[in-house]
Design a protein around this nucleic acid. Structure first.
Lengths: 341, 341
DNA sequence: TAGATTTGTGTAATCGATTGCATTCTTTTG
DNA sequence: CAAAAGAATGCAATCGATTACACAAATCTA
């Protein structure tokens, strides 16, 4: 009996209609004080809980928001999600999590699942959706479901985004390394078909050009974000005729791998060699040799993304609600790039 | 027009009934091949997507599962959630995330929210729900919604749990430290009103007793899981007349803080002093002096929790489906507790 | 070929909450 | 005091999908 109480149960109990119960529960002014009081008491006594599915079906709003990320168990994404959750929870939204594992088909599958689930919005960090599959994105837009990219975005009409200024982050980092006296700066790049990595590369390139340093293709290595690829890349660099004297890695993990290799080779950091990471993973701060890195303020990013979503939802009617928020990255200059001069 | 297609739209298009459309889409054998083909094609052409809310309302199953954790942005919880998601996603369930921030009222609020949302199950790592509020838990059980505790559990009838053997982990760690020649082992404890911390304490205590080492209350310090409290606790220990020669910290972060302090004092690790953490946070492996720690296999824990949920759902009728899974912890013995001896 | 099966669809109720439009009963107004 | 206004509630449709039951048409059986 205590399994499920509906407004009909309450209505029957009080010999009134479900409509009246509903109105009483929703503080409709056309209900008499006495009835309202009675309904509220009875609802409480019978342990009534509103069925949000029924409400959602009728109203067309599920109060669920989908979040799509490559994976949840990295500091960055976990923190963004935390930010999103903190921004949305007070407004009565629940967050549904989907992981893509950087696989395109999972990305498509997740979008479909979330549409099926009738989410009120989708916040996603896009991985590898190719041009030809853009129509999956278009479909979301057509259904007028707010779509917001964070961190990893794509230029698509009507899609808002929250990112950091990757170009600036990269430009400033490169200038910092130059200021430290490094003139041969290697660069660990991510997949440049993703905007964030293209932007970071541009920042690196431009800073070198602006400082009259030639670009050396040998110094530019594509890596995945893990320790081992950082080690391998460092090995390659050290085997060059003219090895670099700094590495700017767009991944903290790869930066760590590089540092390990450099140490193995007896290279002193930062005296002989500077290393700069990206992402402010917790470990970068904890190392005996703390690693300089770029903070992307993921918590903030999540909160802003949540806010952008709320703005869109509350301004559905008004046409122009697209917004591109760009957060400023923070350079955390630590031991791995601070020369005692 | 492309905004939302329902089975009624398809029915109208083909001059048939929604019932027929529904049956065709669900591969009901009573539908002729020709109609089925026609419906499938039309559904596809009109970009039909099943409304899971409607299905959920009718069937009473939302295919959503709620997960309640203290916070999402730590390696441990993020990994457990990942495991849960990977276990449940193939079965068609979505995961809804809630954070408690270790606050009791948020815990209660989250349970209510999830019940409102008609989740099919709740997986939670309980924080601070006091005895007097146990009825919120009871309510979930009464509604016959599978409830599964992971990591942090509470002894409550009809609630399954997935944990690691904290007692064993702690006992073995303590014995390991003793085997390394440490005879004055300090212990950083968490809140012992939580079962996991009580169990860990018991393991520590018993191992000392079994090895004829007296318990020294000065060596037992309550800490929160962060770097600073580890530093402070280490300071306290070093100020003792007879300082310890090992620390077993139930938090990796506190272990790190302690190590930093010990180094400041010129104490050599592991030669003069061994340190053992708990949790296998990523940084423990990356440090120049890698930190020994206990791996709780969070991914595995999440997957098992998902499996336990699925078993419960699929055996609703059978009475006895409660299960208490205990995973074996893995000691990761690294530099911080390995004497060259 | 009449009656029995089989096959394929339609009808209508259901899940739980909300809400526009009656309807009833009071109260007020001229 | 009759009529109009107001207050409180009931009726019934709706959101979208499923399904027990009914029914018609086609096929088969004896």
């Amino acid at each position: 009996m205590s399994e499920k109480t509906t407004i009909y149960d309450i209505a029957k109990e009080l010999n009134i209609t479900a409509a009246t119960v509903s109105r009483a529960l929703n503080n409709n002014p056309k209900i008499s004080q006495s009835t309202r009081k009675l309904v509220l008491e009875t609802a409480n006594r019978m342990n009534y809980k509103q069925n949000r599915l029924a409400l959602a079906l009728r109203s067309g709003r599920s109060n669920n928001v989908g979040v799509i990320v490559p994976r949840i168990n990295t500091n960055f994404f976990a923190s963004v999600i935390r930010g999103i959750e903190e921004g949305l929870h007070p407004e009565g939204y629940q967050v549904i999590i989907c992981q893509t594992h950087e696989e395109e088909n999972r990305e498509i599958e997740n979008i479909n699942t979330l549409l099926n689930a009738q989410v009120d919005g989708i916040l996603m960090s896009i991985s590898n959706l190719s041009e030809e599959n853009n129509h999956y994105i278009e479909r979301v837009i057509q259904k007028k479901i707010p779509l917001i990219f964070f961190d990893r975005k794509k230029e698509i009409n009507n899609v808002s985004s929250v990112t950091i200024d990757d170009y600036q982050a990269s430009y400033q980092t490169t200038e910092h390394l130059i200021a430290q006296g490094c003139d041969k700066i290697a660069y660990f790049s991510g997949d440049r078909s993703l905007e964030i990595y293209e932007e970071r590369y541009r920042g690196y390139e431009q800073a070198l050009l602006d400082n009259n340093i030639a670009i050396n293709p040998d110094y530019i290595i594509n890596i995945k974000s893990n320790v081992q690829e950082g080690q391998e890349a460092a090995e390659k660099l050290l085997a060059l005729a003219t090895p670099p004297n700094a590495i700017f890695s767009t991944s903290d993990f790869a930066a760590l791998g590089a540092i390990q290799k450099l140490k193995e080779h007896g290279i002193k950091i930062p005296e002989d060699f500077c290393v700069f990471g990206f992402g402010n993973e917790p470990f970068t701060k904890f190392m005996e040799l703390s690693i300089s890195t770029v903070d992307q303020s993921p918590l903030e990013m999540g909160k802003v993304a949540a806010q952008v979503f709320l703005d869109k939802i509350n301004n559905r009617d008004k046409k122009k609600t697209e917004s591109q928020v760009v957060l400023m990255p923070k350079l955390l200059i630590r031991q791995s790039s601070t020369r005692i001069a």
